[in-house]
Amino acid sequence: MSYNSNKPTYVHAMILAAFSAGFGSLLAFTDLFTDEPIKQRRIEDLQNSLVQVLPPAIYDNNPALDTFMVPGEDGKERKVYRATKEGKVTGVAYETYGQGYAGQIKIIMGVDPQGKILGVRAVQHKETPGLGDKIEPKKGPWILQFNGLSIDNPPPNMWKVKKDGGKFDQFSGATITPRAVVTGIRKGLEFFSANKPQLLEVR
């Protein structure tokens, strides 16, 4: 490396500027080329998680793109993904939340027009590995037991874990996580009943 300390400041500034400009434009070009594929990947990700809660057989549209907003009971807007077949709404999917052992558990659930659960998945959580993470279908079938249930089946007072006198199993050593998920799903079903006409309206 040459020893350059006698050069005036503006030379250093120019060198830095030249490198910034050069590598900046390199990144700009990369962004140009990758922008479209990245957007595409994002939609695919969404579709992949929607497929788990909305069976592909029930729709002929693309629920990932057919979305609208519905105000929830807390005043916040909720994004709803809609599945339609031959112009009729066959199911809706939306997010709901439960308060887990280590922060919020984000749940996505699909419901058919009669209010029956088509599928539930916990999409984001920080529960203890090996203990609370049994809510993932990869780690066990627990989350699948909700398929086909609705707000009246089991009755509302049974929408609890067994330890609280309800219907659903907790895991050994972990009660808080399953309780959070059950509560989240129940709230999700209540949201469906409260907004049923709006959710199923054809537009």
Binding site: S172, G173, A174
Partner: peptide, 8 residues
């Protein structure tokens, strides 16, 4: 490591 056994 073993929260289940250690809280039983």
């Amino acid at each position: 490591s073993f929260p289940v056994q250690m809280t039983a």
